[in-house]
Design a protein around this nucleic acid. Structure first.
Lengths: 261, 261
DNA sequence: TCTTGTCGTGTTATCATACAACCCTGATTG
DNA sequence: CAATCAGGGTTGTATGATAACACGACAAGA
């Protein structure tokens, strides 16, 4: 088996390059689950690095659950389902369709979370949301402080579900969405957007405060539709239930604007 | 002389122990974002291991986005939002409330995914679901083959959304739920459960096949309620919209049964 | 023939040391 | 005062050695 392993070009860390190279071999199917990797020594020579670097790369892949190794035997490719971490590599983040898909996933989470939050929120949760909203009011639209408080609001909503995983997942997805927006580059802001966005948040908060689950998810749906249009996505589809079965209608190039919250 | 055994508990890999030890320091706030870690040499001596092991641990934490390092300066704790991977450590998985919360998150995803799948499924998606269902029919309830096809069915539904992240997230959460069930240990099966579960799946498939988004999510809700009761959880709350604002009603001990699909 | 024990080889796990690349600081020097 | 340079400290990488473990080969014994 001659794995197509190129010599690594100098970059941030050699171990990172080696790890992603092996990872690519696995992702592209040249290394299937159960296969044994070349020995550390062999990998070291083929990559042109020291065995130490190879070991750091393998330690990383092992922590991700992609491979497992045993002393005296070797390293083997693990089953895909054994992945103990959920990761989205930076390369795919830069594709326009992955942005759209991430945004859709985020919307799905947010709408449901809003409904749960309305049913379970405590007074402390309400206070956290109001604090974040205040922070957004004083910060200029699109600034770091604004984005921070925006994320903080949504996190507070997620934490109001009393289910810690909700916040964990939502923040993770939201951060990927934000990175994806940054990767797309260009942005355009206006004071109008700030007012609109703030109003959307206020309606969400009001519904949650009132314990109105249905209203909260509706307000969140509106907010996400607005956010989608502000970043150049067709709004309706970002909601949980698409009106039309627009099959395979992905790959829109338009990703404009920065503040997507 | 084996005096090193006192410094670190023997485990799978020293680097793993060091990594989780540092990770715990960060999680418990003794190391805050921006703080500088001790030097590799210092960590090596305090842990009683070689610098090489420390480097493997740091390589792992760096890949997870928990810390960042620069040559000539040192290693620093990164912001929590910079985490590039989503991970749920095994310890918290074993707690009963985390199981309940994970199940709720999974339910939220499944119900929405079913609706999307009904709107977007292709013929190939339908074929994949039917194949998985066939596999469940021939395998004994709760067996490895049964669980594999069960997961395969839900994965097929997720892939029918034409959004790869849906499947990625769902499989991740489902695997954690399964691990959590296994951690709880005891299980009880019956042919009755097999028939019931199969019927629930068939109704989901029928709704998706018909393009009935509302029916699909309803069928999935019923399925999840059934699965919840089969593993000893109160069924209704696992659905997306809890009937009552049962605040802080977590920490149920009853986690019985294995096949939760 | 079958079992069992031993040994040798290959591999990973760990250790130890050395050097290169780089950052930071402070003294030197123009 | 500013620029430069030397030095120490830290991470990044290379190299060699040793320990722990897996596995097959092979011979001795029943």
């Amino acid at each position: 088996m001659t794995l197509k392993l190129d010599k690594v070009n100098r970059g941030p860390h050699l171990s990172t390059l080696v790890a992603s190279s092996i990872s690519r071999e696995i992702a592209q199917g040249r290394l299937k689950p159960g296969d044994q990797l070349p020995t550390e020594q062999a990998l070291a020579t083929t990559f042109g690095v020291s065995r130490n670097v190879v070991r750091e790369a393998i330690a990383r892949l092992r922590s991700e659950g992609r491979i497992w190794s045993q002393q005296g035997r070797g390293a083997f490719v693990a089953d895909a389902t054994n992945a103990t971490v959920l990761t989205i590599d930076y390369e795919t983040l830069q594709r326009a369709d992955s942005f759209r898909n991430l945004f859709e996933l985020r919307g799905m989470l947010e709408v449901q979370i809003a409904a749960l939050a309305a049913a379970r929120r405590s007074d402390a949760d309400i206070a956290a949301m109001e604090e974040a909203l205040d922070g957004m009011r004083t910060a200029p639209y699109g600034s770091v402080a604004w984005l921070k408080n925006d994320l903080g609001f949504h996190r507070a909503v997620a934490e109001a579900t009393q289910n810690p995983y909700m916040g964990q997942f939502l923040v993770f997805v939201s951060e990927r969405v934000r990175e994806s927006i940054l990767a797309a580059g260009n942005q355009q802001k206006s004071d109008d957007m700030a007012r609109t966005t703030l109003g959307e948040h206020e309606r969400i908060l009001a519904a949650i405060k009132a314990g109105d689950a249905k209203g909260a998810s509706a307000a969140m749906t509106r907010h996400l539709a607005g956010a989608a249009s502000r970043v150049g996505l067709p709004g309706g589809e970002a909601s949980a239930k698409p009106a039309s079965p627009a099959r395979h209608s992905r790959l829109r190039k338009a990703v404009r604007g920065q503040a997507a919250g």
